[in-house]
Design a binder for these strands. Structure first.
Lengths: 214, 214
DNA sequence: GACAGTAGTCGTACGCTGTACGAGACCGCA
DNA sequence: TGCGGTCTCGTACAGCGTACGACTACTGTC
């Protein structure tokens, strides 16, 4: 299981095959099937490994900081295991680590003074945001803000090139707002995912706090 | 392209193969490669078809209702094309429909009085939420609230069965909060995705409005 | 009428995938 | 000595994306 996760991190999930995993373990491909009925369940297990790395919301602090910690931790883990985004939420049969996280989060909210209905809502909003953010982050091919600026410039250049090739209007004319943001801002000052994530997170946490009672 | 989307809707994306698509079109498999260099670009094209179904934020109304309309429309489209969730945000080269949507959304926010920085933030939060919500929704195997209640009950039953089988503590003891929510609430009153989505959406829109200036 | 070029189709084949099947190896216990 | 687990794995098969090259049908030019 751990070896499978390591391989997914190294080479990406799409190139993780039963044969490669077996090779890595110094075994024949079919030997794996003694421990796992099929590849789907292998993925289930890998996802649960990822869940087990998520820091549970700490007890003894107010719900807001506890949820913040857990959210930030989840983003970090999802970032470390980009292959897992998309598999996490869509897996059929959740494992024990998944149950543990879900239970702890719900408990944190309930103890924090949320009603059952509000707990469900808060949980839904937060997780949607966290996983959605990870989803965006996964696809973008840079890690630091400076790198981001470079990539943005490249992408703009590439697009304008295409646009000129097919005689259509230039990027800036057809999509002025996109140009403003991508060429004007991101290419200038860059984009920092961690900061952006926490800004949105705090925005949501504030809104939840305001709705906590009543 | 349209046929490919139709097939994905009907049979799921994972069983869409070049041969099946060709059959459906009454052609040989290799004929497809005259129009598309490889399957990746086929998927790119399909994703752009999905983008083209998203309603652009209407002009002439305030930014909040415009963004709300577009968000609800996006959820609907993503729900109609569950196969596309996970592909949408992670595609490398975006198509024209994608550019159009992005530009319109950014424009709506800029015209609505957001600074460039705030526009980027608002865009990030909203899209993360929308796609994250769709991601959750995709995996859950029911459509109506009543059906949801039934599924929840079944899942609880299945889990307690497992728990008993391995002599461990019962669900309610080990994961009390989870039990409260799943067995207690969802199994009773059900869960309506559309309502939950709009609740979270309004929560975020309110928070954005509060931060629009300043 | 003859020919070259282009657009479009597709049969065959190759390397890869997940995995069904069944043969074996090793073990403690009778 | 033999039996029944636990565990390993060689072989084989269907299905995947797609490289290659042969084929037809059409269009424009001399």
């Amino acid at each position: 299981m751990r070896t499978a996760v390591a391989l997914a991190v190294r080479d990406g999930i799409e190139s993780l095959t039963m044969r490669k995993l077996a090779d890595e373990l110094g075994a024949g491909a079919m030997s794996l099937y003694y421990y796992v009925p099929n590849k789907e369940e292998l993925l289930d297990g890998m996802v649960d490994v990822v869940f087990s790395e998520i820091e549970l919301p700490p007890t003894g602090v107010d719900w807001r900081t506890a949820m913040r910690r857990r959210a930030v931790s989840t983003r970090e883990v999802l970032n470390r295991h980009r292959w897992a985004v998309g598999l996490m939420e869509s897996r059929r049969s959740p494992g024990p680590a998944s149950f543990r996280v879900h239970n702890a989060v719900l408990g944190c909210l309930r103890e924090g003074g949320f009603s059952v209905e509000m707990t469900i809502q808060a949980y839904s909003v937060l997780d949607a945001y966290i996983y959605g953010f990870a989803l965006q982050e996964k696809s973008v091919p840079f890690d630091s803000a400076e790198e981001g600026a470079a990539v943005a410039q490249e992408q703009v250049r590439q697009f304008t090139e295409e646009a000129q090739a097919q005689q259509s209007a230039a990027l800036a004319e057809e999509f002025p707002y996109l140009a403003e943001v991508v060429a004007g801002h991101v290419a200038e000052v860059g984009y920092d995912f961690a900061t952006a994530f926490e800004y949105g997170l705090d925005l949501i946490l504030d809104a939840l706090e305001a709705r906590r009672v009543g």
